[in-house]
Design a protein around this nucleic acid. Structure first.
Lengths: 146, 146
DNA sequence: TTCAATGCAAATATTTTGCAATTCG
DNA sequence: CGAATTGCAAAATATTTGCATTGAA
């Protein structure tokens, strides 16, 4: 499996560039989200955070999640154990696949989808500003095991 | 604009077929969801329901929404004012478009998307059991106005 | 008549907010 | 130092549950 092209340093840089301070609470949470293979909720991230930084406050995590989402560094997974789990956003335009067996997040090329959408825009006269495609199922590994 | 092929009678039949009783509370809520042009949350549906049936309880609405969703009669709109708004499910395989100007829900043919997904399945060795595509933007009318 | 469905209120999440204390730049 | 950020607790929201009562079949 290729490693994800996610770099915590980039995230820190993005925060700094947007005028946010890079605090220890933030570093902790950045690392957690950047390295998790699975979608995490704020509550789950809070649990993980306190393992290495016990005094971390719950509200801090919620505020940070909001910030990271606004900056586009993490994105919401709709429909996997609710709608409030998050995965890192990959730099390329990709779409999300979640394996319902092992829970792992994976990413697919979304160019074909974008082509489809562009075509649809032309035909319908709509303007599409945001699209979410999420795929659920069994990854190649889990499909084999079954 | 073509009228939606939604028939409240079908919904009642679906409830009956699945062993549920068709109560007045249910009729009220079915009509509300079947005829709303906009995604509705349980809370909103409750407000509307009480206009014509004041004694309707909040829990009843939540329970009914869950039931209708399980029966596949309504479906969740992910990402429009949260993740807890619902629109009627159309009989055909369609995908959802929400206009962020006027809030109206519209439906698009999803055959092209399904083709895309099937292709991706073959290439990747994954098995895709569920896919959600939601499009947001401006409908033809609102695009013109802007 | 019988049991699913309801309404109400209380119990649970879940997420947000106010604010004094802390900490980065 | 000064402003952004934090932790804590309380508040606001959203959703679920228990239970006695009602009502559809």
């Amino acid at each position: 499996m290729p490693s994800k092209p996610i770099n915590s340093d980039n995230w820190r840089a993005a925060l700094g560039k947007n005028g946010f301070r890079v605090t220890t609470a933030q570093q902790t949470l950045i690392d957690i989200f950047a390295h998790s293979e699975y979608p995490l909720s704020a509550e789950q991230a809070w649990d993980v955070a306190r393992q290495s930084r016990p005094k971390t406050g719950r509200a801090t995590v919620y505020r940070m999640v909001e910030k990271l989402e606004n900056l586009g560094l993490i994105r919401r997974v709709h429909g996997y154990q609710g709608c409030s789990h998050f995965v890192p956003t990959l730099p390329e335009q990709m779409m999300l696949f979640i394996c319902m067996e092992c829970g792992r997040a994976d990413y697919l090329d979304r160019q074909p989808l974008d082509d489809l959408i562009e075509q649809s825009e032309h035909i319908s006269g709509r303007q599409i500003t945001e699209s979410r495609l999420q795929l659920f199922g069994a990854c190649a590994d889990c499909k084999q095991d079954a």
